[in-house]
């Protein structure tokens, strides 16, 4: 991905609307005019915990229009529960916009968008961009169960075809979304995906088999979210433009058993160099 010229800052936002699905996914609408103006598809925000005591939470920006943005949350722990409990009128401070988003220029004529769970949040802005620039896209969207599928209509409204999969077969294809993508057989020029790591690895494999490239938006636990702590790394080819400059390993490589493999890759920060990477440059 090319590095985006971005101007992150701390933004004081206010919850203006809140939607909760039957499956417990919460969509927080926020008054955040600056972020709405600046954010690019695939970028994210770090939410400062209203109660302190824990690291901020990284969330992909779902919608951005006029003076409003929204964030999509699945409650997985204390941090996300605290955010999901915010009501209309509550304040939420965000570090945003962060990271390098999708390389939209490289998403060519016919794009497969692949989303798992709340990874859908990072797919709407790219979808809007693609359709606005006259390119074709198809959404493959997987979730655990029918109730956990949200907002397919927002994609359909853009004229994008949607195929869904559920782990329990309550809607669409019974199985993983990546199996659906594989069986579907539609030819796409390029893939763009966001979801859990196993899903992203599978998308990478499918892309390789089809001889096309895939941009993956990685989900990982962040501590700082701004590139300071090197906690959220992924192994990447040294030759990637996203690889941090790092000296070549020597035989005296310290504390690393396999000097030869060490010379093949380095660790890049998902929060800073990513969160979007080309699958064929990752070594994970």
């Amino acid at each position: 991905m090319r590095a985006l010229a971005t101007s992150p800052a701390i933004h004081e936002t206010v919850v203006v609307d809140r939607r909760e699905t039957l499956s417990g996914i919460v969509i927080l609408g926020l008054y955040a005019p600056e972020i709405a103006r600046l954010v690019r598809p695939g970028q994210y925000a770090m939410a400062v915990p209203p109660g302190g005591e824990r690291a901020a939470t990284a969330l992909g920006v779902y919608e951005a229009r006029d003076e409003r943005i929204s964030l999509m949350l699945a409650v997985v722990g204390v941090r996300t529960r605290e955010l999901a409990n915010l009501q209309v009128g509550a304040k939420l401070d965000l570090l945003a916009p962060l990271g390098n988003g999708f390389d939209l220029e490289a998403l060519r004529d016919d794009v497969a968008l692949v989303a798992g769970g709340v990874g859908l949040a990072s797919m709407l802005l790219p979808a809007q961009h693609l359709t606005a620039s006259g390119r074709r896209a198809h959404l493959y969207y997987g979730a655990s169960t029918a109730e956990a599928l949200v907002d397919e209509s927002k994609f359909a409204e853009l004229g994008i075809g949607v195929s869904v999969a559920t782990d329990d077969g309550t809607r669409g294809y019974h199985g993983f979304v990546t199996e659906l993508l594989e069986r579907d057989g539609r030819a796409h020029d390029v893939l763009a995906a966001c979801g859990p790591s196993p899903m992203l690895r599978a998308v990478g494999r499918i892309a390789r088999l089809r001889g096309v490239r895939a941009q993956l938006a990685l989900e990982e636990t962040f501590a700082c979210g701004v590139g300071a702590c090197w906690g959220c790394v992924v192994a990447i080819d040294r030759s990637s433009p996203q690889a941090p400059r790092f000296p070549q390993a020597s035989s005296a490589w310290d504390g690393h058993a396999d000097a030869a493999s060490a010379s093949e890759y380095v660790y890049a920060r998902i929060c800073k160099e990513g969160p979007v990477f080309w699958s064929d440059e990752l070594r994970w």
Binding site: G77, R79, V233, S250, W253, G255
Partner: peptide, 18 residues
């Protein structure tokens, strides 16, 4: 000497801690 660092995951959030 250069150090690649530890394998991932490198972080785990715990109660009031990291």
């Amino acid at each position: 000497l250069p150090r690649l660092g530890n394998p991932t995951p490198r972080l785990a959030v715990t109660p009031s801690g990291l």
